[in-house]
Simulated scan of single mutants.
Amino acid sequence: MKKQQLVLVSIALTVFVLLYFFGNTIPPKKAVPETGQAQHDDHQSISFDDLLKQAKTRISPEQNERLLKLENSVKRGDVKEQQLHLYHQLARFWYDSVRLFEPYAYYTGEAAKLENSEKSLTFAAHQFLDRMMDARDPALQNWLATNAKVLFEKALALNPANDSSRIGLGACYLFGNISENPMQGILPVREIAEKHPDNLFAQKILALGGKKSGQFDKAIERFKIIVQKDPGNLEALFNLAECYEEKGDNANAVKWYEQVRKLVVVPEAQKEIDKRITELKK
């Protein structure tokens, strides 16, 4: 692996570790079977207008002036092409100049809808999905999942055989607070995992679903499949350790935290892992 790649991997691992140890990493236990009852959190609705209004309070007067010019730039003529170009410009504005994810993702998604290609739709959908999996606010989760769902559905209309899009859509139902029946998400993903056990994306979604519902044995089984195929998968290793910790199996929790410790090179992260291991050994 090239030196630049090693640096990027190291940074990614460090960010992951810090998110786990300084964030709320273990969701509240819910006695909900992987195959059964509804998991629908009450939440307030949120709209893009709300998010955009809030985002605009974080930009400078100069940025606001530039944004107004962009928003008013569509004129008569080939409106679709102009709108597509505008969405790309707005996405770049929020990503490059302001570094805010929600408006960037929204305009990327709107551009993808106009392009209506599987590549653009799935790219935009996974942007929303990845952020949804890390979000903690139920209203934001719902907004992210709703946008991802629409994009995945449009992509599947173009290519119904795309397993990644089917899994992504299932994850929206499982984790996005968009349905009172999570079975809508579980069944298609399980079908793919049973047909293609090596599909680690499917295994990951089912494992996280088991962890969320408090079915740690099922989650552990699936996370181990991932680790067997991908021994350096830091997310799976962390989740294995946490599942064992939640079960009260401290010996196995320590075992897997020690595996994580081997992959982390940043001193601050190492200290947090060592602290967790020490506490579990008491």
Results as ranks from 00 to 15, higher is better:
101 F>T: 06
2 K>S: 12
33 P>H: 05
58 R>E: 09
120 S>K: 05
165 S>M: 13
236 A>N: 03
34 E>Q: 06
177 N>D: 08
12 A>E: 09
118 E>G: 08
196 H>D: 15
74 V>E: 09
3 K>D: 06
59 I>Q: 00
36 G>H: 07
136 R>T: 12
114 L>D: 04
245 E>S: 08
166 R>K: 15
161 A>F: 09
146 T>D: 10
224 K>Y: 04
159 N>S: 13
119 K>L: 02
100 L>H: 01
108 T>Y: 03
223 F>R: 00
255 K>Y: 14
241 A>E: 02
15 V>M: 11
126 H>M: 14
67 L>P: 04
174 L>V: 10
112 A>Y: 08
106 Y>W: 10
25 T>K: 15
1 M>D: 08
25 T>S: 15
1 M>Y: 06
84 L>R: 07
83 Q>V: 00
144 L>K: 01
126 H>K: 12
81 E>R: 07
6 L>S: 09
112 A>P: 05
98 V>N: 00
101 F>V: 05
244 Y>L: 05
140 L>T: 14
166 R>W: 09
169 L>S: 03
172 C>A: 13
262 K>R: 15
275 K>Y: 09
199 N>Q: 09
262 K>I: 14
207 A>F: 02
132 M>A: 10
84 L>P: 03
93 F>G: 07
15 V>F: 11
130 D>E: 10
177 N>Q: 07
104 Y>R: 02
110 E>I: 01
194 E>W: 12
38 A>N: 07
110 E>C: 06
113 K>C: 03
147 N>E: 09
69 K>A: 13
146 T>P: 02
62 E>Q: 12
113 K>G: 01
65 E>V: 06
163 D>Q: 15
60 S>P: 04
165 S>D: 14
140 L>M: 15
257 Y>E: 01
200 L>S: 05
57 T>N: 07
138 P>D: 11
108 T>I: 12
217 D>P: 01
236 A>F: 03
54 Q>K: 13
227 V>Q: 10
119 K>I: 00
104 Y>E: 06
29 K>Q: 09
91 A>N: 03
125 A>C: 12
122 T>E: 09
203 Q>I: 11
252 N>A: 05
133 M>L: 15
251 A>Y: 15
58 R>T: 11
181 N>E: 14
66 R>T: 12
120 S>M: 01
88 H>L: 10
268 E>R: 11
219 A>D: 02
79 V>G: 00
245 E>K: 07
24 N>V: 14
241 A>K: 02
179 S>C: 12
134 D>W: 00
226 I>H: 04
218 K>V: 06
127 Q>L: 01
39 Q>F: 02
43 H>A: 10
42 D>G: 05
280 L>R: 04
60 S>L: 06
53 K>M: 03
99 R>K: 15
68 L>V: 15
199 N>I: 04
49 D>T: 11
40 H>Y: 08
261 R>S: 00
102 E>L: 13
77 G>R: 05
243 C>F: 07
39 Q>V: 04
157 A>E: 14
263 L>D: 01
165 S>G: 08
11 I>Y: 04
19 L>E: 06
172 C>S: 11
139 A>M: 08
147 N>I: 05
25 T>C: 02
46 I>K: 07
273 I>C: 03
23 G>W: 11
76 R>K: 10
46 I>G: 03
30 K>C: 05
39 Q>M: 00
36 G>K: 13
153 E>H: 12
74 V>K: 05
223 F>V: 00
228 Q>R: 11
21 F>A: 10
